[in-house]
Simulated scan of single mutants.
Amino acid sequence: MNLSHKKVLITGGSAGIGKALIHELILHGVKEFAVVGRRQDKLEKLKVDFPQAEFILIAADVSQLEDVERIIKTVSTRWDHIDLLINNAGVISTGALQDLSDADIVNQININLTGLILLTKKSLPLLLKSKEAGLMNISSGLGYIAKPFYSVYAVTKAGVRHFSEAMRRELIFENIHVMTVYPTATDTDMMITAKMENMDSAELVAQKSIEGLLQKKIDVILGGEQRLKDVETNLNHPLEFDKNVKEKYKAYKTQTEHHRAM
């Protein structure tokens, strides 16, 4: 896939992995971006940080259907097609299920999964007009391996994984390459309240994601060989992985005790 002169629509693009993806795409020749975020001030800063790019900046909440429709209406007034849709917006609220607020449960599902599905649906007519389009969904390592105290977040990211798989097969005769990225814990604002060390950088996730896109991979799994082994163990020997969870249970509880980025 040649990224030069592509038109990219990205959600959650004003910080973290999203902003790193914009930087990486610019290095590969992309100049036109439509960026969705919830804070206008952060969106405006993109113009300062990346003066070589052209931006359509859209302050919106993908959990709201009217905002999703407004995103597409705004983009379609400027562009006649979209070459790459990156569904990156996400929130997290961790802890024991009975301690999570009802609002945090609903909002995680609406932003991480429902909004992603709706934006993809509304974007498809524009993606299908591209000669060579891509759909990149940012899931999580927790989309492969669910861990305690991440119940709702994990199910949203597993949903992203299966949605990508279904869309890849639904669009198998179309001009849209569908891929999913599974980051490990990444050093972004979303992780400030998590008690974790040795996290991946947003830049690394972006580099691996774009490398995977260029190679037309369907999955990009961060975390190295150990993560791949863990995925295999969890799939084929889940009770063995449960033993690992027992050994680390207190650590999981501690690191998720105050982890919330909504």
Rank of each mutant, 00 (worst) to 15 (best):
M1A: 13
M1K: 13
N2V: 13
N2Q: 14
L3H: 09
L3C: 09
K6P: 08
L9F: 05
I10M: 04
T11M: 06
T11G: 04
A15V: 05
A15G: 02
A15D: 10
L27T: 10
H28Q: 15
K31Q: 05
F33G: 04
V36N: 12
R38N: 10
Q40R: 12
K42G: 12
L43F: 14
E44I: 13
K45Q: 03
D49I: 07
P51L: 05
I56H: 02
I56W: 01
I56Y: 03
I56S: 08
I56A: 05
A60L: 01
D61F: 02
V62R: 05
Q64Y: 01
L65N: 12
D67N: 10
V68E: 06
V68K: 07
E69Y: 00
R70C: 08
I71Y: 15
T74I: 14
S76E: 14
I82F: 03
I86H: 09
I92N: 02
S93Q: 06
T94H: 12
Q98H: 15
D99Q: 14
D99M: 13
D102E: 15
A103W: 12
A103P: 02
I105H: 06
V106F: 00
I109K: 03
I109M: 04
I111L: 09
N112V: 06
L113R: 15
L116V: 14
I117H: 14
L118T: 10
K121L: 11
K122T: 14
L124A: 09
L124Y: 13
L127E: 10
K129R: 15
K131Q: 05
E132M: 10
E132Y: 11
L135H: 06
S139N: 01
G143C: 05
G143Q: 01
P148N: 09
S151K: 03
Y153M: 01
Y153H: 02
A154R: 02
V155M: 11
G159N: 13
R161C: 07
R161I: 08
E165K: 06
R169D: 12
E170V: 05
L171Y: 11
H177G: 03
P183T: 05
T184I: 01
D187F: 01
D187W: 07
T188E: 00
M191W: 04
K195E: 00
E197N: 06
N198Q: 08
S201G: 07
E203A: 02
L204C: 11
S209Y: 10
G212S: 07
L213M: 13
Q215W: 06
K217N: 06
I218E: 02
V220E: 01
V220Q: 03
R227H: 02
K229M: 02
V231W: 03
V231R: 09
N234F: 15
N236G: 08
H237D: 08
E240I: 08
K243R: 12
K243D: 11
N244H: 07
N244I: 08
V245I: 13
K246R: 10
K246N: 04
E247I: 01
K250P: 08
K250D: 12
A251H: 11
T254K: 15
T256G: 05
H259N: 04
R260M: 10
M262P: 02
